[in-house]
Amino acid sequence: MKRRNFLILGSLFGLSSHLSGKRSLLPSKQQKETEATIQAVQEHLFPEGNTIPSAKSMQLTQFLFETIGDQSYDRDIRAFVIEGAKELQIREKGRFPSLSMSQKEKALRAYEKTEYGKSWIERIMTLSMEGLFSDPVYGSNIQESGWKALRAYGGQPRPRTRYIAL
């Protein structure tokens, strides 16, 4: 199976390099072009007033871009996150962020029906949960709100830096 197909169909394994660096590997143009769409998707998946904290309150979009821009993140998945957002924009004629809640639900359910779209939404879901439930050192799970909601807490000692920057 070719790597691209493999990633699109979903991988059971976390792939990525171990080098750490502060400079984002994601061109700022790509972030600008897709940020509003990705943010709207995350806020739809993790809305306000839920039993678990919302995307907005946990700064999940900022977490997502910092995460995929890090050198530890798989380069092919990074590209897939951006491509999948652009595909959703094309499908919804660039209007996804301004759709009503029910229209967003309809658009995402339709996207989910495609193998590619389902894989992309799953990737956004994974990246969002990585923020919600990872250590607050990564900038989300603010005041451990994600952990408190599930009454499940990370172990001791906690990381002092991101990605074992020794």
């Binding site: 390099s17 171990h18 990564y138 000692p157 906690r158 990381p159 020794l166």
Partner: peptide, 26 residues
């Protein structure tokens, strides 16, 4: 590399979801 006892943490993102302690597969 060497990671000493006091440098270990229970960082799920780093240890279990990224290849931090194994080579980059590329």
């Amino acid at each position: 590399r060497l990671i000493q006892r006091e440098e270990f943490s229970k960082d799920e993102l780093a240890y279990c979801r990224r290849d931090i302690v194994t080579p980059n597969l590329f």
